[in-house]
Design a binder for these strands. Structure first.
Lengths: 341, 341
DNA sequence: CTGTTAGCGCGTTCAG
DNA sequence: CTGAACGCGCTAACAG
């Protein structure tokens, strides 16, 4: 591997001149530029970005730390991120935390050592520790999808409380009064916010909250299955289920299917984040659709602004609109309640 | 940000000693080690990985270059990759080429400048150019999912010819004789291999290949829709459709739905790579299921072996088994052929 | 428009 | 067991 020095020697100029040619910085006469470029071609010289990064204090790399890239919601976010970062010359590293704050801290540790220019973080829990780490190392961060208390940090998300309220109001509007809430872990803002929206909607409709109907299981298919099993064993059983995310919904659907409980005739089901529209013949779930791709884009744009030195005060909170999509998984409550053995 | 030198001063030792403590290399007395560790803690010292990488010629970073992270098949691969790379201290950068060889080369250029230790490549076309680039820069590569001619390069994939033949034999076994093949771009090995398997299966069954039934559109929902539109306009129409990947299948399903053509009563449909099992209530498509997660794992393991200096001769070709999953989208051909207006 | 000097922060010599 | 010196490849600051 030849270095900038080899090129300089070969072209009979100084390394500085070569550097200028490569980076189009400063002035260079057409003649020297040409001879440098020829030397580069002849030697097959490839600039070493690591050395450049060491010198310039900038790595042109951002990280995307999320719970599970396997969830199409996050995949779509990732695509949005890459679509803005890539063309701007930024590399994107991704890390799966599986909602484990320990994993999250380990990754953040690694990432700061690598001097990433910024981090897009979907916090695995209360974000205070990770945020403190990042702040102490002066690395810009945008919190994605989930809410954090601090007004000092940039955030991009949807309004889980409002959107949840909308979704549940749709159910109460249909006449449902026993609605089970299958949510994520208590430490995650979207999980608690969606419960909060649920409670608001119930209050709007004058329905008391039955705590047995509210579950904080976790954002996974297995947890959805389990929570559905639990609430369907209650007496009386709920007439509607609210899954706080797509994976919970998938697990719940599986359980209902096993129990031969039909949606929406026997029970209604709503959720956040179904699968992408064009994957489905005929979307079935009534959901709040979050603009995942746009969330990824906006978050990346905001982060890159900070990286480019936008003043770190006046942190922004970008709250994108979710959209209620009423489809075929909701109907008026069944006249005869579901009987579970 | 404090440097190793600050720590050394603070602890009253040389930088070398600090380095030894950090990297657990060489001997250090318990006493000095303790005082160094205290200094590190007091100063909040964070080793600069970029400097280390410059020195050590190793970046502990690999790249995953694929067509579209949005496709759950590739997402699952990505997860497999990260699950082996992460714990070993490797960062993973991902790049979306959208099957564009130009984009692919741009990314590869960027990645080699960044001195990534290795690349996992899902080639966007004939892989010769990208592979030559990588080889000339001495960066190890494992080709994923798609086949390349060279016996010199590591590969991890399934056997598209055999699996396709299996899938189509299932159709001919049911009595189908007019089977449309909706494939990816001609430049992509899985697309041509699946066509090859299709032709073999037809030959096995003594059915001549009707070239009008074979389409090379591309691995996307829109292309699937379009190809389905085209073949369903033929007279006589096919009695079965073979989508070369999941996205093509989704597009085809949409078109069939519009045409009020029912699967499997009016037409049969098979595909590679449905959605992950636990996302679906009751999987419908008859498919060949590829072990995507395992492919990602194996490819990453192989790559990291090369990175760790496994001899580059004896390139490996790992061919993982696909599995035929017969489900409800296939049946014997309809007695009355589909009539399209 | 071009060159010189001096590091970026670390780890690898090789001496002690 | 520890330290001094050097250089990885590049660019910021100055000259000129």
């Amino acid at each position: 591997m030849s270095t900038i020095r080899d090129v300089a020697r070969h072209a009979g100029v100084s390394t500085m001149t070569v550097s200028r040619v490569i980076n189009r910085s400063g002035y260079t006469s057409a003649a020297t530029r040409a001879s440098v470029e020829r030397a580069i071609a002849e030697l097959g010289y490839v600039p070493n970005a690591v050395a450049r990064h060491l010198r310039s204090k900038v790595t042109k790399t951002i990280a995307l730390v999320l719970s599970d890239i396997t969830n199409p919601f996050f995949t779509t976010i990732a695509r949005g991120v890459e679509d803005v970062a890539g063309p701007r010359g930024f590399g994107v590293m991704f890390c799966n935390t599986d909602e484990d704050p320990g994993e999250e801290m380990d990754y953040l540790q690694m990432l700061t050592q690598r001097q990433v220019d910024g981090v897009l973080l979907v916090p695995a829990g209360s974000a205070t520790e990770p945020l403190r780490l990042l702040r102490s190392r002066n690395v810009p961060v945008v919190v994605l999808d989930r809410r954090v208390r601090s007004r000092q940090v940039d955030q991009v998300r949807t309004d889980s409380v409002a959107d949840s309220r909308l979704l549940v109001s749709h159910l109460t509007g249909l006449g449902h009064r026993r609605i089970a809430m299958l949510s994520g872990k208590r430490t995650i803002s979207t999980a608690t916010d969606r419960v909060a929206g649920y409670e608001l909607a119930l209050r709007d409709a004058g329905i008391p909250v039955d705590p047995r109907l509210v579950r904080y299981g976790g954002y996974g298919v297995a947890r959805g299955y389990q929570m559905a099993t639990e609430v369907m064993a209650l007496d009386p059983a709920p007439t509607a289920l609210f899954a706080a995310n797509n994976f919970i919904a998938f697990g719940a659907i599986r359980r209902l299917h096993e129990l031969r409980i039909h949606v929406p005739d026997d029970i209604s089901l709503v959720s956040f984040d179904d699968l992408p529209d064009d994957w489905l013949i005929d979307p079935f779930l009534t959901v709040v659709d979050q603009p995942a791709y746009e969330m990824g884009r906006r978050a990346a744009e905001l982060l890159l602004q900070r990286v480019d030195g936008a003043p770190p005060h006046d942190a922004q909170s970008i709250v994108l609109p979710g959209e209620l999509m009423v489809r075929r998984s909701t109907a008026a409550p069944s006249p005869r309640p579901v009987a579970v053995a």
